[in-house]
Simulated scan of single mutants.
Amino acid sequence: MKILLIWVSCLAGLQSAAHAGPWPREEGHTFIAAGGNFLLSDGAELPVHYDPTLYVEYGLRPELTVGLDFYSADKGRIYSAFSFAAIPANSLDADLKSMLSFGIGYRRNADGSEELLTRIGLSLGQSTPNGWLAFDGNITYGAIDQTFRPKADFTWGRSWSDQWTTTLQVQTGQGFSDDHYAKVSPTLIYTINERYRVNLGSVHALTGDRGSALKIETWIQF
């Protein structure tokens, strides 16, 4: 299962490189993103590890996107799963796109305990002449530990041609042990066709053990 999750992550279309981004999924269309890290540097454990992710998104209506979000953290000792719904926070025709997301989830902790999670998020995005800028933030609350844990990602994307795109993302948040982390992740995206894209990049920790890894992600939309 762990190998499957590693190969089966990232997000919604070329317009956004963060989960539950500000651009709603087109009605009747599905997006699947999956991947993880590999070739970890010596001693890389926190905040960079293998970190497999699986993300599924479906456009239920023009103004309602629903999905599932699975991922691991804390050196692979914690597993989380969410179902969520996302709705526009302003007009779909506005230049600055915004989406609110609401999720209910489950987490298996490092000590074997399990707890119910709730999550609320806000995403903002602005198209640029050759790409986009985006902010994706959320707060997760655990029913057992009763702690609010924030997370925020900042993304800049640039399209160079019909086939090649690059992104630079800064990821920040609060971990399960109440530590605060920051990571930077540059990525090269290759468009195979309208349905498939492959992303190859790296991730570097700015906190913790300052470990690094390469990452691979696959995007499928239909």
Rank of each mutant, 00 (worst) to 15 (best):
Q15L: 10
N199Y: 03
F135D: 10
T140V: 11
L122M: 06
Y196E: 08
T128C: 05
H19V: 15
T165I: 02
R195Y: 01
V56L: 15
F84G: 10
H29P: 08
V66D: 01
G121F: 04
G67A: 08
S177T: 12
Y141W: 11
S91N: 11
D42T: 13
V184K: 01
D95K: 15
V48C: 04
P52A: 02
L124G: 02
A81G: 15
S123W: 03
V66F: 00
G175D: 05
W219F: 12
S91H: 04
D95R: 14
D145K: 10
Q126C: 09
Q146T: 13
G21T: 06
T30Q: 05
A182S: 12
H19A: 13
G211Y: 00
G121S: 01
G121D: 08
A110G: 06
T167I: 05
G208A: 07
D42E: 13
W132E: 09
T30Y: 04
D136V: 14
K75T: 11
A110M: 05
L11H: 13
T167E: 03
L11G: 15
V170S: 08
E45A: 13
C10Q: 13
A152F: 04
F154S: 08
N130F: 02
P129I: 05
R77I: 03
D145M: 02
K215W: 00
I220H: 09
Q126W: 07
I139K: 03
F70D: 10
W23I: 08
T140I: 11
A182Q: 05
L214H: 05
L5H: 06
T165M: 13
F154D: 09
E194I: 02
G131M: 01
P62H: 04
T30S: 14
G13C: 07
I192G: 01
Y71T: 13
A44V: 03
F154K: 02
S72F: 00
Q169K: 15
Y141V: 11
I120P: 03
E27R: 12
A20K: 12
W156V: 15
D93N: 14
T191W: 01
S101W: 00
I120S: 10
A213R: 07
D145P: 11
E114G: 12
K75Y: 02
P129C: 01
G137Q: 07
L39D: 10
I3Q: 12
W132N: 14
A143M: 03
K183A: 09
A12R: 12
A33P: 04
L60F: 07
A182D: 07
D162E: 12
I189C: 08
R197K: 15
K215A: 07
F102G: 15
S72L: 09
T172E: 00
R158K: 14
Q163H: 09
T165V: 10
N199I: 11
A182V: 08
Q174S: 07
S113H: 04
I104G: 12
S98W: 00
S161M: 05
R25V: 15
T167W: 01
R77C: 04
R149T: 13
Q15I: 02
V66P: 03
D51L: 14
H49I: 01
Y190F: 14
S91R: 12
S202Q: 04
A86C: 05
R119E: 10
A81R: 14
S72E: 11
T147Y: 02
E27L: 05
N37W: 01
D179H: 14
L40K: 04
K2T: 06
R195K: 15
Y55M: 08
F84I: 11
